[in-house]
Design a protein around this nucleic acid. Sequence first.
DNA 1: CGTTGCGTTGAATAAGGTCAAATAGAGTGG
DNA 2: CCACTCTATTTGACCTTATTCAACGCAACG
Lengths: 245, 245
Amino acid sequence: MNEVPTQISLKQLKTHCSSCSLRELCLPMGLDAGELEHLDRLVSTRRPLKRGDSLYRSGDVFGSLYAVRSGFFKSRVTTDDGRDQVTGFHMPGEILGMDGIGTEHHTLDAVALEDSEVCIIPFAHLEEISREVKSLQRQFHKVMSRELVRDQGVMMLLGTMRAEERVSAFLINLSQRFTARGWSPSDFHLRMTREEIGSYLGLKLETVSRLFSRFQEDGLVSVQQKHIRILDVPGLKKIVGQDPC
Amino acid sequence: MNEVPTQISLKQLKTHCSSCSLRELCLPMGLDAGELEHLDRLVSTRRPLKRGDSLYRSGDVFGSLYAVRSGFFKSRVTTDDGRDQVTGFHMPGEILGMDGIGTEHHTLDAVALEDSEVCIIPFAHLEEISREVKSLQRQFHKVMSRELVRDQGVMMLLGTMRAEERVSAFLINLSQRFTARGWSPSDFHLRMTREEIGSYLGLKLETVSRLFSRFQEDGLVSVQQKHIRILDVPGLKKIVGQDPC
DNA sequence: CGTTGCGTTGAATAAGGTCAAATAGAGTGG
DNA sequence: CCACTCTATTTGACCTTATTCAACGCAACG
């Protein structure tokens, strides 16, 4: 349990899902204009975070979900014996905080990897409105379910893939998610360190670094520190798919 | 996508959550008598499965959740290139099928590891009732959230633990879940093969077998084929917790 | 009583991890 | 603006762990 209260710096910014550019990636996905009005009333405040700030920590009382409005987050789980692992990286339009619903306390830490902003979604209120707005209820259930499916993908990655497959799959996944946000699919800035990537992929940071170097030698990517340029998508995909023989 | 329709052998058995012995482990958890009546109307049929039968398969259209009433299941994810991984083992009182909500199609296979029976929970109907019964809505959200938290535990296991820690954690976890069901915490029958355990833990079956043998030598457990007797719980816990140095 | 699937065990091997040293940038204060 | 720090990253050499490959044992079942 973490007793230190998260530093509050809550700007009361008026938020409108109905005019948000992330509408089609986020909770409002598929809602019509009338339904969006309900959401506009529900999601009324935003919270800015500086790089390194925790949005919430393991043990914190759960009260709200958060939609990433801008910036980049990681979520992290810690065991009693002090080991931790990054369990996800989160970008605009994605929903954070669902780990806390089951026990009324968060089980993860969510940390901003760059200056960021989230929309606050008070959970009791979300439940209340989704009792009235069927399509919102359905959409929320879909968001949770997709998170479950995402987790299965990560388990697959951790359980069956070799190091080079993991790193390749990681780059492809980032690329796709960047694309969905209208950013370059092939040219991007990693917000996380090699250690955080390694933690997420179940590898050591040296292994990640070596594989980045090897992919570069093989002409698959160009790596300059945190700047990645993907040169050969089919080549990366081939690495993921290929038989380990 | 799997086009083969699941073989239907649907006995119309009358089910009553309100009188079910798994009430406090399952979806009805925490509901009062009046609220349980709604559930009784919702969950009205059961479906028996033989060992090896699929409850659903990846690609099947999603329509219902399932509560394990008796027996034992595994869920499994398969990649395009034919590799698969066991992502969970499921025992009475646990809810299956939530992977299908997000896309209206299942992404997992759910397979009975022994003759089993599930209660069928038509999902549209569940959503409808949970719009009226607040505590059911809350309970369902908790069930999904706990599944997310469980997945994080598996990621931690796969990402950071050594082989002996994984096997030890696996045995402890089984033991705890058996205990919650009123069965022996220390004496049980594994329904799954070494290969399935290995797949779940991200290990090869030989590694699992070797570790069972070593744990037996060390007096932590007694292993006879699928019959496990845990002799030293603190010893097993020490293996999980200990620093790898 | 042979077949078949599952489990155990040993020896060799390869994939990643560990340890250590060198380098490169980013940020800071003078 | 420059020197200085600090952290992140890269790379090499070596080592540990788990996998691979192979052989054998066991139990259930027709």
